[in-house]
Write a protein that binds this DNA or RNA. Structure first.
Lengths: 189, 189
DNA sequence: ATTATCTATAGATCTATAGATAATGC
DNA sequence: ATTATCTATAGATCTATAGATAATGC
């Protein structure tokens, strides 16, 4: 049953990957270790060879998801310096992102849940948020850096809140309207 | 052990009240029926005389919390027509609200969770959101009603996102900065 | 020999129900 | 007689651990 160190490291990554999707889809307390391991193609008992606890995995999976977001935002900024804000906002507030919880921004799907977690998860959320704010600070309009950072924090809040509200309501038109309103306001000036 | 009809109705309200607080504090899947009943001063088994299921309570508790929010916002609008927006934003984005999850806006604490619930809860969230948007539509600046409604939806999103992010991070200064940024931006124009 | 994974299980907790109890309200 | 609540429990699920197994890597 034993596998190579390389394969074990790969398995660990698969667990983190599965957890990143399932936590976002179901919430930290809405999915169990056994289901995550099953999604990763492994058995329940093997989990504790890789992680100290479910909380430990929650922190690591959160970090992994946020690192990917930061890389994606930075890449958009680098590749499309002229219209990066528009691209990010359109992508973030798209119907596709709203409907695909398991692969969307973790602050929308798990931000409120993170507040209920221990220090490691909340530390991961703080450190994971900073690079996104840094990208937005470059992109939003404003005379001074201080003014742009303030605008960036407000814009990030608006993105997160819009996706949360658009998902919470069961009325499709209302949901679309919520996304469209923030899209229009964020790209207005 | 049996109590009067009046007392039973009162007990039901106590359960809904306790659930409204505990769900906001712990999430829909972070608290059990037994704990809610204990908080209400009743025993576990008695629950199913009042509600069909935990989901049933989740929908009813959500409606109750949102009805109270709507009443509070409408009261602020009525009593302070000149500076209601400022009052609402200052209250919503205060450190006190951030730190008191169990009595704060349900969209921030349970919005993401609601997306994972069944139709009744999501219907409650849609119907509960509308009156808050209506109040904001009166308060935000804008030439036309259409423009004001768009601004209101964007403002609500920003409020919800700011409180979610401020709670998710473990860095107190960063958290305060998130709240201050949205406060400043929302009251700028 | 070491160790990554598996099987099996302990012990706690969760939702929901059955049946008993005792006070209300006809 | 009805019914609101209680006690007790069924059955499922959850986190975590113990010990067995078998392939890796010295």
């Amino acid at each position: 049953m034993r596998v190579s160190r390389e394969k074990a490291a790969e398995n660990r990554e698969t667990i983190v990957e599965a957890a990143g999707s399932l936590f976002r889809e179901k919430g930290f307390s809405g999915i169990g270790v056994a289901d995550i391991m099953r999604a990763a193609g492994l058995t329940h008992g093997g989990f504790y060879g890789h992680f100290k606890s479910k909380d430990d995995l929650a922190a690591e999976a959160s970090r992994a998801v946020m690192a990917r977001s930061a890389a994606s935002w930075a890449k958009t900024l680098e590749e499309h310096p002229d219209n990066a804000l528009e691209l990010l906002v359109e992508r973030y507030l798209s119907a596709k992102m709203r409907d695909d919880r398991s692969h969307s921004c973790i602050f929308g799907s798990l931000g409120a849940d993170a507040a209920r977690q221990g220090k490691p998860v909340r530390k991961a959320f703080a450190e994971g948020l900073r690079p996104l704010i840094d990208v937005l600070t470059v992109l939003v309009p404003g005379a001074s850096k201080v003014a742009r950072r303030r605008k960036a924090l407000a814009a990030m809040s608006q993105l997160v809140g819009a996706i949360v509200l658009a998902r919470a309501v069961d009325d499709a038109d209302f949901s679309d309207e919520i996304l469209a309103a923030s899209k229009a306001e964020l790209l207005r000036d």
